[in-house]
Amino acid sequence: MLTVVILYLFFAILLYFLLGGADFGAGIIELFTSNNNKTRTRRTMYEAIGPIWEANHMWLIIAVVILFVGFPTIYSNMCTYLHIPLLIMLLGIIARGTAFSFRNYDAIKDDKWQDLYNHIFVYSSFITPLFLGIIAGSVISRQIDPNATDYLNTYIFSWLNWFSIAVGFFTVALCGFLAAIYLIGEAKEQFDVTRFIKKAVIMNAAAVAFGGLVFLAAEVENVHLAHWIFGNPVSLIAVIAASVSLVLLWYLLNKGKTKVIRILAAFQVSMILLSVGYRHYPNIIMVKGGNNLSVLKDHAPMTTITDLGWGLLLGSLMILPALGYLFYSFQRKNNIV
């Protein structure tokens, strides 16, 4: 049952990044859209993220519950040493969701409050994935020091380092790329399709640039990223698959296949995550001094894991059909409109 719980944890994280990442990316796209086109972008964005913008956080909640119940040592360490970026990320999620609702359902659409909602939405859409990436970079950078005796080394430099920040900006670029690709398929007019293609090109270039910065920062911070990715066949195959899927994505986009490219974008991001995560599995947190926290040894008692596993399996029987019906309902609504 431990394997089942671990699979649910990893799939919840993956789905949150693919769906929630594209959700955040829509705000990033709006942030870098000219004032003349912001209204058009918002209209397309509402149709694209409408069915998933609240449901996305279900995957984050599932991941948090799994860590809290099944891996309390890992959970407590993350909440202790990374509580500052975690708090900023959670505040960003709250601010973004609140602003999205207020600006969409506010009875008055042309007052100064709308400007405030818009600013909160786009900047929290940028900040949230930035700190999500910083957290991800921090848990594998070996900057967390359980033996630190001062505040800065314990709670600040555990995440405020070049590698984690580079991963944060790389995450922002990936989210923007995912959103642009998803929005291409939702656009109804060729003018909007062309705009979103340009955004996808820009975000793709930004992801490549920040990806290079991640490798450079890894060398500076003595993180063995290149060895993890290119030092084993699975990660290497994943990198090749991501590269091939990206080429295929742009080829199909030039052919006008705007729907299937979403699958390729999601596949590419999944391969990127696999290439990084495979080498240091089962370690989730890699701390300074060589000690690691692993999902295979730092878990709750097996009775707890068994109960959690059955809870996840039975819960899926209710959650997944409901989620599928949610997508179906919004798709049917859009077709009718």
Score class of each variant (00 low, 15 high):
A242H: 11
V172K: 03
A300T: 04
H119N: 06
M271T: 03
F327I: 03
N292E: 11
F230N: 00
L313E: 03
P146D: 08
L67I: 02
L91P: 03
L293Y: 15
L246P: 09
A209P: 06
D298Y: 12
H119L: 08
A22F: 08
L326V: 09
L216Q: 05
L31F: 15
D110F: 12
L60C: 13
M89C: 12
I156G: 07
S101P: 00
G21I: 12
S294Y: 07
Y278G: 07
M89K: 03
P233R: 02
A205N: 08
F68M: 06
D110M: 04
L87C: 11
Q114S: 08
I52Q: 01
N334I: 02
Y281D: 06
Y117G: 00
P129L: 10
L2I: 08
A200K: 08
T33R: 03
W228G: 06
L18W: 11
Y151R: 06
Y8W: 15
T33Q: 06
G289V: 01
Y155T: 06
M286Y: 05
V193M: 14
T80K: 11
Y105F: 09
T304K: 10
L248K: 10
G315E: 06
Y328T: 01
L87F: 13
Q268D: 02
L86T: 01
V193P: 07
W162A: 12
I120M: 11
G21N: 11
I319R: 02
A241F: 07
W59S: 08
R40F: 10
P129W: 11
W113E: 00
D307K: 13
G92P: 07
